[in-house]
Simulated scan of single mutants.
Amino acid sequence: MNKKLENSLLSIWVVSLVATFGSLYFSEIRGYEPCEMCWYQRILMYPIVIMTTIAYIQKNARIAITTAVFAIIGGSISLYHYGIQKLDFLTDSAPACGLVPCTGQYINWLGFITIPFLALTAFIIIAALSFYMMKVLKEEK
Results as ranks from 00 to 15, higher is better:
M37L: 15
V49A: 01
V49K: 05
Y32H: 14
I29Y: 12
I48S: 02
A55V: 02
Y32E: 11
K59L: 00
W39M: 13
I48T: 10
K59H: 03
M37A: 11
K59C: 00
T52W: 00
F21Y: 15
S23N: 15
F26S: 03
P47R: 06
Y25N: 04
F26H: 08
P34K: 04
I43D: 13
T53W: 04
Y25W: 10
I48C: 01
A55T: 03
A55H: 00
P34R: 05
I43Q: 13
Y32A: 14
T20Q: 13
S23Y: 13
E28Q: 07
M45R: 00
F26R: 00
V18K: 03
Q41E: 15
V14H: 10
L17I: 07
T53M: 06
G31Q: 09
Q41D: 15
S16F: 07
W13A: 02
V49D: 08
V18Q: 01
I48V: 07
F21E: 15
L24F: 14
L17K: 04
G22K: 15
Y40V: 14
W13K: 01
T53K: 02
Y56G: 04
S27H: 06
Y46K: 02
S16T: 07
T20I: 06
A19G: 10
W39R: 13
W39A: 12
L24Q: 13
M45P: 00
W39Y: 08
P34N: 10
V18T: 09
M45D: 09
L24I: 09
S23F: 14
L24R: 09
G22H: 15
L44P: 01
S23H: 14
Y46C: 06
V14S: 12
K59V: 00
Y46A: 04
I48D: 01
R30T: 02
V49M: 04
Y56M: 05
Y56S: 04
E33I: 05
M51L: 02
F26C: 06
T20W: 10
V14D: 13
A19I: 05
T20M: 14
L44A: 12
M37Y: 15
